[in-house]
Each structure stands twice: as C-alpha cells, then as structure tokens.
Design a protein around this nucleic acid. Sequence first.
DNA 1: CCGCAGCGTTCAGTTAATTGAACGATGTGG
DNA 2: CCACATCGTTCAATTAACTGAACGCTGCGG
Lengths: 296, 296
Amino acid sequence: MRWSLDDVPVYVAVVEQGGMTGAAALLGRPKSSVSTAIARLEKALGVRLLQRNSRSQRITAEGETFYRHALMIIEQAREADAIVAGLRADPAGRLSVALPPAFCQEIVAPRLPAFRRAWPKIDLRILITSHGVELLREQVDMAVVVGRMEDSDLVARVLIAGALTCVASPDYLARNPVADGLEALRSHIQLCETRYGSKRVPVHVAGQAATLDLETGISHVNNPLVVRAAVLNGAGVAPLPRHYVRDQLRDGSLVEVRPDVTFDIEASTLSAVYLSRRLMSPRTRVFLDFLTEASR
Amino acid sequence: MRWSLDDVPVYVAVVEQGGMTGAAALLGRPKSSVSTAIARLEKALGVRLLQRNSRSQRITAEGETFYRHALMIIEQAREADAIVAGLRADPAGRLSVALPPAFCQEIVAPRLPAFRRAWPKIDLRILITSHGVELLREQVDMAVVVGRMEDSDLVARVLIAGALTCVASPDYLARNPVADGLEALRSHIQLCETRYGSKRVPVHVAGQAATLDLETGISHVNNPLVVRAAVLNGAGVAPLPRHYVRDQLRDGSLVEVRPDVTFDIEASTLSAVYLSRRLMSPRTRVFLDFLTEASR
DNA sequence: CCGCAGCGTTCAGTTAATTGAACGATGTGG
DNA sequence: CCACATCGTTCAATTAACTGAACGCTGCGG
C-alpha cells in the first residue's frame, strides 16, 4: 500500500462534487492541493481514476471501484471518530438494553464490573429477554438477538458468528466411546437447544454434505447453558455454540467430539440491533463497543 | 474528524510491536516520526491512547477501543488496494461461480455484457444451482447463496439484505380490494416462495409483533420469479423480495400492498461465499466487486 | 464561428512536516 | 545497589508538502 490514506477523503469529495473546484470548496483547501492529491493517488495506485479534461470530468471504471472502497474506509474512520468523541464526552444517563439470557449470563455479566468502572455515569438497565427486538422502539435503546434479523430501518451488527461444535465430558467419553459415522454420533445426543433441534440439520462430514435429525427422541430446552450444565454432568454429547464452551474446552471439563462434523446453520449468531447508526448517543456507542470487545 | 488517516497505520504498528522503536523499525521510518505521529493523533483525538514511560508501554482503555477501529480502517484500505492491484493485473483465466437461478436471471444476466466488456480475458463459467456452497471446495471459486451461512473457514459477504414486501397487480387489486387486518391480507395470498412459506412467519404490523401462516392452503414454488410471474398475471397477493420487484414497482405493473406489514425474516438475504479472503485471485476479486455493484 | 467563463494544472514562494542526533528517564542484570 | 542498555522525547536542520496566482485548455452561448 504505497498511497496515502489522507488522499482518500479528497478523492471522495472530488467524485461527489463532480469536480476539483467543488471539492476544494467543500474541503476548504486550495484547488491546487486537490489536484496534487488526485494526481499523487493515481500515480501511487498506478490507475487512472478520473478521465478529465479542463471542462468535463468522468469517472473511470477503476475510479468507480476505488470510490466504493474509499467510501467504506471513510465510513470506518467516521465511526472510529464518533466512538472516541463519545468517549471524550464522558457518557452518562440512562441506557436500556435487552439481552438474551445465556449471552447476558456468560458474556456480559462477568465483564459488567469493568463496564461499570469505565463508565460510572451510565445508568445501565438490563432487561433479560429473548424477544428484544420487539421492545426496541419503545423501551430499549439496543437489543441483542440470536440470528441476524436485519429489518428495514434497524441496524444490526454481528457480535458473534460462532459455529456449533459437538462436546461431551471426558468421563462420559471414557465410558461411552463415540464411533465413526453420523448415526453413531447421533445416538449419543440426548439433549439439544430448541433453536437448532430440528428434523433436518444440514452438516458437513469431511467436506461431504449430510443432514442430522436433532428432533426425534431428543430432549430440548431453550437455553444453551442448561444444555451445557447437563453435558458437564455426563448427559452425553450435545451440539453447542463454541463461544459458550470456550472456557470448558480450555480447562478440560469438556472435550470436542468429532470435530470433522461441521454444522452449516448459523444457530449461534448473535447480533446487536439498534435503530439508527447516525443519531446514536455516546452511551449507546460505548455499550456497543463494550459488547463487541466482550464478544471477541 | 480532525485527525490524519495516515497516522492510523503508525498507531497500529506501535500497538502491535508493543513500542515505538519496534514500530519505527517495522515501518522503516525514524522513531521520532512515530513519536510525533502518536502525539499528534492523541492531541487531535483529545484522548490518551498509550500510557507510556521511557521503558514501559501500556495501552489505555480508549487506546484499545481506537485500535479496534483502526484495524478495520486498515483492513478496508488493504482491500481497496488489493482490488486496484487486481485491476491493474488485467484479470484473466477461468473463473467458476455458482449462482442461484433467480439471482442469476434477474441481477447478473442483464449486467453480464458489461462484465464481459470490462474483463474480456476472464473465462467465466456460471453454474446455476441453489446449493452452491457444496461445490465451493472442488468445483467453483465463489458461490452466491440465499441466507448468510457463515461457516468456519468460509468468508461470506452480504450482497443484498433486502426485505420482503407484499405485492399484487393493479387490476387484481381493482377487482379484489384488500381490507385491513392480517387475516384479510392472508386470504389474498395464493402462492408463496417455498423458503419463507412456513407455518409461523414473524411479522410486524404497525410496530406490533404477530405471526402469519404462509403454509396452510397456499401453493409453493422454490423460485421467486415464478411467483412474480404469477402475481403479474393476477394470482392475488404474494410476499416477494423487494429487489426482485423493484422494476415492476417502478413501472406500475405491480403495486405494494399493505406496506405497514413488515416481515421479520431474512428470507431474501443473498451472500457471496468464498474460501479465503487473503489468497484471492484478481479475477475472483473483480467478480465479487461486480456482484457488489450489481446488487446495489 | 468565436469570445469568454470556468475548469484543472503548473510553478515558485512559503509553510509545515520529517528527520537524525542528542537528551533525560527507567527498568534490569550484574 | 548502581551502571548500563534502551526507550521515548526534544530540537534544529533539512526536506517535502502545501499554497495561491498565473496559465492553458475546453465547451457553451451568443
């Protein structure tokens, strides 16, 4: 990357104003600076961005492509700026958020003291519910939901896009070895989270597509932590979102079973949903940032 | 935004190298430049990014936050750079892609001549299938799939996150006015795409959550364009992805019915899926870019 | 058909940023 | 416990970038 990032906003201004003079006026800098910046950018990229005469200006195909990416760079920069500006403003006030039970307990709760310490002036109100989106318009500023439901004027940001993995306790496995084959794996599954406990769950076994019946003869509960607790106590094998078993896999209280079986569904995706990206209060910003960091 | 984008890579280098001297060595610039850049960035942001003595260096909470966003800015810049570098390399060779039937016909096909003109040396092979992901590892370089299935080492990029909307032909509506209420709407729906034709489809009516039965007594077909053709010829009301009825809504051959009913499902999301973001050939890059532009 | 308004480029003077060496500070190994 | 190695900062000399006026070009209206 041999080009200067500072030339990117200049280029965007030129494209959007349809000319260097307009861009110069917008940026409040002499047009010669704009001209130099564009020339430098083109030289560094090795591509003609704008086909320009002294009177007409049209964007080239390469310029169009670069413009789209330039917009995304600037969008990211603006977001970074808004975040830091929010941090400086010392966020305060009431912030209501809706969180799903398992996410709140596992991911948010352990980090809540740190959040309180960082932003003591934020009066945080957590509402534990699995149907947070419905409360968005009236009662809460932000909701974390399972899945990626992206709706009209709502903005969704994926927090965790983790995959499912089959786990069991070591002593269960010692007593009940799991043989090869999908049917053998299936026979060890006693309990499953409701959300992905359907009749035909698409999976891949060593690259080969197949389906797994997680409905017939299996108990269901709508909380992955309950499933985890059961499996920890020897309730066979169960598919669980990887981010809810990370600690257990590390300390050895759970082990992965048949890692060659990968699930194609996105049952464990968690998104933060809020109303508008633009008019976001500093406190909502820092909380979204907190969630992003907590979900890493 | 009063800070310079060019200082962002410097900051990232300092964080990752754990010090200014290391960052200076990495960037191949004098350490005084690095020191100045960090000081300037901190001043412009109005925030302390790094708490540093002459021998120890620890990142502040604000610095951590800014670092995450800085990474994203640089990621975007790198992608832009790679794209342009790909364009310069004059992409050539065989490129196999898997596309779903409706997407190929409606979005890709009309723009195919433009793609051929832009990249005559790319030998494009399109495979029309609804199960493109399964072919990813062996037969195709990229697959467009309905939904957002994001799996392990696959990278998915959302092309269209359009919502569903209920449409009908104007003359059908003239002969059969649609009354208020969800049940009234329901009675006009004769045909529905298979994917979202389930028993309990979550919807919102003027902000109120409800469900709609799109299974009982409704015909189904796994191609939204067939549904559209039927509706154009007077087959009642049907929910369709907005991007497949955009032209018809504009020219008046279809009209929106009950726009106060919004669907919460993401049936019409289309993603491009490929294996690795890093080792992407120029031809795959330009095709992804082409898809992104075509989907706008 | 031509003059002019307005565009992007060029260039020399000016200003700001960059730089390498010197400096003070600090943790560590002997 | 202290000397040293190493780190980040500072500062003046250097260098590169920026700027504003002048220039040349072009398309449009008269």
